[in-house]
Design a protein around this nucleic acid. Structure first.
Lengths: 334, 334
DNA sequence: CGATACTTGGTAAATGGTTGCCATGATTTT
DNA sequence: AAAATCATGGCAACCATTTACCAAGTATCG
């Protein structure tokens, strides 16, 4: 691999001049710039970003930690972050946390040790205190899809409680009174908040919360089928169901159909997130729009603004979910 | 951030000893190791992997380039690579190519400049020649989901032609004779091979290929709906459809249903890939299993073996697709 | 023509480690 | 007790680049 020395030699200019050409922070005449560039081309020179990073203690890269690499939700989030950052010439380094505290911490360590200019975190297992502590370190952190009170400035989050409320209310407004809920894992902030919204809506309609109509499981298809299986076993009639996310809704709907219910006639279902395939399941899923992609972009903008001083208009830190009505819910008729 | 100097100072040992403890490549007595470790802990020392990488010209990281960060297919692939590599203590650096030649090249440049020990590529726009040339460089490359003759040793690929053949044959065996095909972009290797398999199956059954029943579009839902819209306009009756991938199948099915066809009664559809949501669309999709996740893992194993000399049993480089029968296809009855 | 502003050269330190060498002292083996 | 082995120290070179500094050369301009 060619080095800057060889370039300077071939171009017959000094080391410093090569560096000047590369970084554009000092004036260089067109003629010499040309010489340097063509020498680079001839040698196939490519700056060693590791050495650059070490010497300048800047990385031109942003770390991104997500729970999983697969999953529609994370995909959209990553894509949002990446597109915005790449447009600004920055690269991302992605790693995973798998929603396990130790792995999340390890991932963070890795990103920090990699000299990232900043890191964007989507973490679920790690405590607020840990994040606050972390934010005191030298690597700036930004948090996506989670709200940490003391770090509000660096958070991009969704009003999950409102989402849960809207989802539930939409069924109540359609006349349903027995509305079950299959929530995500209750140690997860967003799952908990969505559930809280569910209860608020019930309360508003003077409907008592019923333990038999509640189940908490994994944010996955299997969680959904497991949840509805459990609830159906309780023998408590219900005509509405709200789910922790779209995957769960999908799993629940399949199970329900396989067990003799027709949708949406016998059961109205509301999902959460509006991931890409929500409109491809049948019946098309009524769900809560979670603008993850937008939020990813916004996190990137926040980084550009705060770290690279690129001013970004219209920074928005708290996003509001909204209801998307499709075919999986219907007016209760008896 | 603490440095190795501060550690050596606090532990009252030499620089070399600290390095010995970290890398475990020379004997260190338990006593001194203990001293060093506790000093590290006290200082919160974290090795600077950038400096390590520069000094040792090893990165302990593997570059991974995928077309997109979202999309079920890429997600599974990334997850496969990551899980295997992480289990071996290696990290991945992910970037994207968006199936655009320049972006793919730029992504590759980035990964190389990042001193990755090896890079795993899922590229579609770049030519075979370019890859061969690239493989002569200092950074070893591995190619996933594509077969390059001259680089066979470094490829993990799927027999796409066989997949296309199996998909088509499954419909022919069910008595369908008018089988349409909505293929992916024909500049993509896998899309082309699948289409080739489609034609081989037709030929085997002495059914001529009909231009009216063919369309090539984006590997997306919109590609699928666009494709079926086009074919339906041709007014040539057909009872079977094979699609370039599951997303396209999903798009086509929705469009078909919205335009009066009932599935699978009027039209049998076969997808390709068996991404996670194939079984959650309705009717559940009959499709070709593309073991991307496995292939991702295998690519990682190949890297572990060839680069880190960790011997991996059961390396398999060419994967065979297989048919998964679900509810979207049925025997043709007239 | 001389003053001024720009462009460039050359040098050297710094970034945070790795790696190999040789010397030294301690410990174990014979 | 001499010899061999082992653990450590101390040193220096190296990785590819950035950055600051000063000196020197060269246009440009009035």
């Amino acid at each position: 691999m060619a080095t800057i020395y060889q370039v300077s030699e071939l171009a017959k200019v000094s080391l410093a001049t090569v560096s000047r050409v590369m970084n554009g922070n000092a004036k260089v005449s067109d003629k010499t710039r040309e010489k340097v560039l063509s020498a680079m081309k001839e040698l196939g020179y490519r700056p060693n970003s590791i050495a650059q990073s070490l010497a300048s203690s800047r990385g031109n890269s942003i770390g991104l930690l997500v729970a999983e690499l697969d999953g529609a939700f994370f995909g959209e989030m990553m894509a949002g972050v990446e597109s915005e950052l790449r447009a600004a010439g920055k690269h991302i380094i992605v790693t995973t946390g798998h929603s396990i505290e130790d792995k999340e911490k390890e991932g963070i360590e890795f990103l920090i040790s990699r000299n990232c200019d900043a890191i964007i975190l989507h973490v679920e297992a790690v405590s607020d205190e840990y994040l606050v502590e972390l934010s005191k370190g030298t690597t700036p952190i930004f948090i996506i899809s989670r709200y940490v009170e003391d770090l509000a400035e660096q958070c991009i989050s969704l009003d999950n409680e409102l989402g849960g409320y809207l989802a539930t209310k939409s069924l109540l407004e359609l006349g349903h009174t027995e509305v079950a809920c299959i929530a995500g894992p209750q140690y997860k902030f967003d799952a908990k908040a969505r559930f809280k919204g569910y209860k608020r809506a019930l309360a508003e309609y003077n409907i008592p919360f019923k333990e038999e109509l509640f189940y908490s499981a994994d944010f996955k298809e299997t969680g959904g089928s497991e949840g509805i299986a459990h609830i159906m076993k309780q023998q408590h009639k219900f005509t509405g169901l709200i789910c922790g996310n779209d995957e769960m809704a999908s799993g629940a709907m399949n199970y329900a159909r396989e067990n003799g219910l027709s949708l949406p006639e016998d059961l109205s279902v509301v999902g959460f997130d509006d991931v890409i395939f929500a409109r491809y399941i049948h019946p098309k899923l009524t769900t809560i729009l979670n603008p993850v992609n937008e939020m990813g972009k916004m996190a990137a903008k926040l980084v550009l603004q705060k770290i690279y001083q690129i001013k970004e208009p219209n920074i928005q830190q708290i996003f509001k979910p909204s209801l998307i009505v499709r075919d999986s819910t219907k007016l209760l008729t008896n």
